Simulated assay, not measured.
Amino acid sequence: MDTQTRAHTVLTVLKTIFPNPAPSLTFSNNWELIVSVVLSAQTTDKQVNVVTKKLFHTYPTLDHYLGTSLDQFTKDLSAIGLYKTKAKNILAAAHILDTQFHRVVPQTIAELILLPGVGRKTANVVLGNAYGIAEGIAVDTHVTRLAQKFKLTKHRDPKKIEQDLMHIFPKEEWFLLTMRLIEYGREYSPARKKDDDTDPISIALRKATKTGP
């Protein structure tokens, strides 16, 4: 089975199981979205939501981030992994957003990655959720693992995996593809079962191989 056919099969199953995927992070504006995604690095979305529930109440506007000290903000993030680095990056990003982008979250990857703590993956997530823009595909650990499992890529480098996925999936599917793969990984194919082939997509791929030309 060629890669394009595999991609079509994977997408069909994903859209059947998750017709209307929704973000698992909780936020009420584009700046809070950036904060949430930065905090989610090597941390579960569930834990991020616990922390941001209080954080967004304490810091309801960008001015509150600009007006706090690094020491205080670091303490406010102490319940989350890598909190010292994340605190420094978020406050630095707030200042850049204020001074360079007129307090408006940028609408391109090139501009978003100028914000400390924002890499290409984070930028893709922000663009999709904030503006419905798909410049690329956000590749996290779930996407990496499943893309390899379903033989959609031979690479391990997230940037190369992203390019492979962009080549075989329609652009209009890019944003929701990440959300669907993440949910699929959590519910049907967690890392601890990486060699299990009884999940719906693995079954569908085997059937497609048997019935294919």
Rank of each mutant, 00 (worst) to 15 (best):
residue 44 T to W: 08
residue 152 L to G: 04
residue 107 Q to H: 13
residue 105 V to S: 02
residue 74 T to E: 13
residue 69 S to H: 07
residue 142 H to D: 11
residue 65 Y to K: 08
residue 118 V to T: 11
residue 125 V to K: 07
residue 61 T to Y: 06
residue 118 V to F: 12
residue 118 V to S: 07
residue 68 T to S: 13
residue 148 Q to F: 03
residue 47 Q to D: 07
residue 45 D to S: 03
residue 88 K to S: 12
residue 101 F to C: 03
residue 114 L to M: 13
residue 54 K to M: 12
residue 136 G to D: 12
residue 138 A to F: 11
residue 67 G to M: 11
residue 130 A to E: 11
residue 110 A to I: 10
residue 44 T to I: 11
residue 116 P to R: 09
residue 111 E to W: 02
residue 133 I to C: 10
residue 121 K to N: 08
residue 60 P to M: 04
residue 55 L to A: 01
residue 95 H to S: 14
residue 62 L to M: 08
residue 91 L to N: 01
residue 76 D to C: 08
residue 117 G to Y: 13
residue 142 H to A: 06
residue 149 K to G: 01
residue 78 S to I: 13
residue 47 Q to V: 13
residue 129 N to S: 05
residue 112 L to D: 03
residue 149 K to V: 10
residue 93 A to Q: 04
residue 93 A to N: 10
residue 119 G to I: 10
residue 99 T to H: 07
residue 62 L to K: 04
residue 140 D to M: 04
residue 66 L to A: 03
residue 75 K to G: 09
residue 151 K to R: 12
residue 73 F to P: 00
residue 64 H to N: 15
residue 140 D to V: 02
residue 148 Q to H: 09
residue 53 K to S: 13
residue 77 L to T: 01
residue 111 E to V: 00
residue 114 L to N: 14
residue 104 V to N: 12
residue 63 D to A: 09
residue 148 Q to Y: 01
residue 103 R to K: 09
residue 62 L to T: 09
residue 71 D to C: 00
residue 109 I to M: 10
residue 61 T to Q: 09
residue 56 F to I: 06
residue 56 F to K: 14
residue 135 E to G: 00
residue 71 D to A: 12
residue 84 K to N: 14
residue 131 Y to E: 11
residue 46 K to A: 14
residue 146 L to W: 04
residue 65 Y to R: 07
residue 52 T to P: 05
residue 113 I to V: 15
residue 118 V to H: 12
residue 57 H to M: 13
residue 138 A to H: 11
residue 143 V to G: 08
residue 87 A to I: 10
residue 61 T to W: 02
residue 139 V to S: 02
residue 117 G to M: 09
residue 55 L to N: 08
residue 150 F to L: 00
residue 73 F to L: 06
residue 64 H to Y: 13
residue 123 A to G: 08
residue 145 R to S: 05
residue 131 Y to P: 00
residue 92 A to R: 15
residue 94 A to V: 05
residue 107 Q to M: 09
residue 147 A to I: 08
residue 65 Y to V: 08
residue 118 V to I: 15
residue 90 I to T: 11
residue 119 G to P: 00
residue 89 N to F: 12
residue 79 A to P: 00
residue 63 D to I: 02
residue 139 V to L: 06
residue 79 A to G: 11
residue 94 A to N: 09
residue 143 V to S: 09
residue 82 L to I: 15
residue 118 V to D: 05
residue 74 T to P: 00
residue 117 G to C: 08
residue 51 V to T: 11
residue 128 G to K: 06
residue 89 N to M: 01
residue 54 K to A: 14
residue 81 G to P: 03
residue 123 A to Y: 04
residue 121 K to D: 10
residue 148 Q to V: 01
residue 97 L to Y: 05
residue 44 T to F: 11
residue 103 R to N: 10
residue 114 L to P: 01
residue 140 D to I: 00
residue 57 H to S: 15
residue 142 H to T: 00
residue 102 H to K: 13
residue 50 V to D: 13
residue 87 A to G: 12
residue 75 K to Q: 14
residue 82 L to F: 15
residue 51 V to R: 02
residue 142 H to P: 02
residue 86 K to N: 08
residue 119 G to L: 06
residue 130 A to M: 01
residue 138 A to G: 15
residue 123 A to D: 05
residue 66 L to K: 00
residue 128 G to Y: 15
residue 64 H to V: 02
residue 85 T to G: 15
residue 85 T to W: 05
residue 124 N to P: 00
residue 127 L to G: 08
residue 144 T to S: 15
residue 140 D to Q: 05
residue 102 H to I: 01
residue 98 D to K: 14
